[in-house]
Every structure is written in C-alpha cells, then in structure tokens.
C-alpha cells in the first residue's frame, strides 16, 4: 500500500520542506519514503514542487504523476495540477492566495487559508506548516460520510502522528532554531482544524 502526495507552489513557500518533513515523519514510523523534486533553471520565484511516496513496502516509481493528494500553495499550481489528482483523491489548496475554487467533483477538496492563519499566529512564514497540519488531519479521516465504496489511497495507509511531524521538524531545524518549534506546531494544529 502506498500514498502519493504532490506538494506545489512558488519557490520560497516551503513546499520542498513540507515534503521532506512528511518523509522524515514517515521514516520515524518505519514507513518507506521517497522525495522527488522538480528542478528547473530558476533559482527563486519559480515554481517548485515535490512528489512524495509513502508506503509500507519498498517503493517502485518515485515519480508522482497522479497524486492521491495534491497540496497546492498557489494559483499556478492549482491550474497545473488539479487535473492530475487520481480519481477519488484529495486536493488541499491555499485559499489565501488562490482566487478560484477547484472544479473537480470526483475528489475531496479542502480549502485552507494558510497565509491568513499564519498571520493570525504572528508569523507569516509558517503558512506551509498550517497546510502540512491540514494534510495530516485529512489522512486521519476514515471512510464514511461523503465517500462511497472503495477506500481512497490517501486513507488506506495508516496516518502519521503529529508527534512524528514535530520530531521531523525538530530534526530539521536543529538546536539553533529549536525556539521556532512551538510556533510551527501551533500552525500545524491550526491547519488541522480546517479539515
């Protein structure tokens, strides 16, 4: 069983970091992971995205071409990737920066006002962590309600705990930036409430 997740946005929005944190948290729970970034000639301000595969078996292709979940931080990403989400999948979008609603009706859609929540928390830079919290909360939802029949891939794999994400954050930030953990954790918790 595996889940394929795509994180996309502007360079500088922390989308590559979101993917890495998910990987490290999943590794902490002994799951298999792969992280594959897009890489282009632009250094800043260009589009950035990464595909993450989390699985409970050795991973085949690390490429994410039909994500089970798309996590989209800006309008160009929505325009580019909405159509690629696997049928029955999910799409989380940053409604602070994206001025249109997704059109797909065969997938679960969640609006997360990442930048607004981050600003309310007093640190505009944690918008990505708000979104990561929302993603994490989504994976914890079990079938029932809106869905019918088969369990979508993003629900089938056991969810990763918020503790593991905080662990991943701690490992990534290191001692120097440890003071940033509480605000990031708050952001994830706030994001989780959007789902």
């Amino acid at each position: 069983m595996e889940t394929q997740v795509l994180f996309a946005g502007f360079g500088g929005q922390g989308v590559l970091l979101m993917g890495q944190l998910l990987c490290k948290a999943a590794m902490h729970e002994d799951l298999e992971v792969s992280w594959m970034p897009s890489y282009g000639p632009e250094m800043r301000g260009g589009e950035a995205n990464c595909g993450v595969v989390v699985a409970d078996e050795p991973i085949g292709s690390p490429l994410v071409t039909e994500p089970d979940v798309a996590v989209l931080m800006n309008r160009p990403s929505l325009d580019k990737f909405e159509s690629t989400v696997a049928p029955g999948g999910a799409l989380l979008y940053n409604s602070s920066l994206i001025d249109r609603a997704p059109k797909r009706e065969d997938i679960r859609v969640v609006a997360v006002p990442c930048n607004e929540i981050a600003s309310e928390l007093g640190n505009a830079r944690v918008a990505n962590m708000v979104m990561l919290g929302a993603y994490n909360a989504l994976t914890k939802q079990r079938p029932g309600g809106a869905g019918s029949g088969a369990v979508p891939n993003w629900m089938a794999l056991r969810p990763i705990s918020l503790e593991s994400l905080v662990y991943a954050l701690r490992a990534t930030l290191g001692k120097e930036k440890e003071r940033l953990i509480p605000i990031n954790q708050k952001a994830m918790e706030a994001g989780a409430r959007c789902v």
Binding site: Q20, C23, M27, E32, V33, S34, W35, M36, P37, Y39, I59, P62, L63
Partner: peptide
C-alpha cells in the same frame, strides 16, 4: 540520472 541525483530516500 537527474532523478537519482535529485531525489531523497532514506
């Protein structure tokens, strides 16, 4: 190839 160079794995 570029994929193996750029991708991250444990």
């Amino acid at each position: 190839d570029g994929m193996i160079g750029q991708m991250m794995e444990p």
